[in-house]
Amino acid sequence: MKDIQLENRAVTDEKTKIAANNVNVYYGDTRAIKDVNIDIKSRTVTAFIGPSGCGKSTFLRCLNRMNDTIDSCRVEGRILLDNEDIYDTKVDPVQLRAKVGMVFQKPNPFPKSIYDNVAYGPRIHGLASKKADLDGIVEDSLRKAALWDEVKDRLQAPGTGLSGGQQQRLCIARAIATSPEVLLMDEPCSALDPIATAQVEELIDGLRTNFSVVIVTHSMQQAARVSQQTAFFHLGNLVELGDTDHVFTNPTDPRTESYITGRIG
């Protein structure tokens, strides 16, 4: 893998987008997340790292209430999006998810055309009144996802026919087509080859200008490359949170150091 060093890795915006206070997540009787407090800043890429089963994906899914679809899952504590509690009974998860989009581990395009995949979100949220508007959104999203040049001639071809890397970029385009404010990415590169990974990483860094991005990753190199903030999870605890440079070069917690140096994981 190219060990590229992305430029401009200073945090540009200090405004807090999502604030989690004392969050606990239970699966049945098992406590999967323990008292997590974290602030996620806007226009920043925040990476969640940690060994398998540490709860980083679970916590990510709490941020747009995707855990609601799991019957046995229960969330305690407060998660605020722009100072509004997303677990408040008045909140409609549908509206929340329109603001907090998600990209999944495995590329999961719908068995529809490329165009319909990207247009799906805008259509259900009613973001475009005219065909031309929708065309604009689709083109714009595909451009942002760096996919436009590759697919502009075959927008009606099925999305499932693309290569793995293209599929994942299509899924990113689909997620950003609804203009979310936060984009959650759950190990978006784990199913991709190195070249596709590099493309997606480049894309993630570009997305920072518009969105606040939270990315779960297995790869410390990836976290180092794309993120400005890094959170290290271990056994359901948030062990360390800080500027990526700081966490990787000078971790405060011994567990973080062990993980980074490869002793746990």
Binding site: N64, M66, T69, V94, Q95, L96, R97, A98, K99, G101, M102, V103, F104, K106, N108, P109, F110, P111, K112, Y120, G121, I124, H125, C171, R174, A175, T178, L184
Partner: peptide, 27 residues
């Protein structure tokens, strides 16, 4: 129908019925 399809749709803010009608059933 793989669960990831449903996740993708729900993650975009579709309601469950929209997910069923527009993603699960066509699939």
């Amino acid at each position: 129908v793989p669960q990831t399809m449903r996740d993708a749709s729900l993650g975009l803010g579709a309601t469950q019925s929209e997910t069923i009608k527009q993603v699960v059933l066509p699939a």
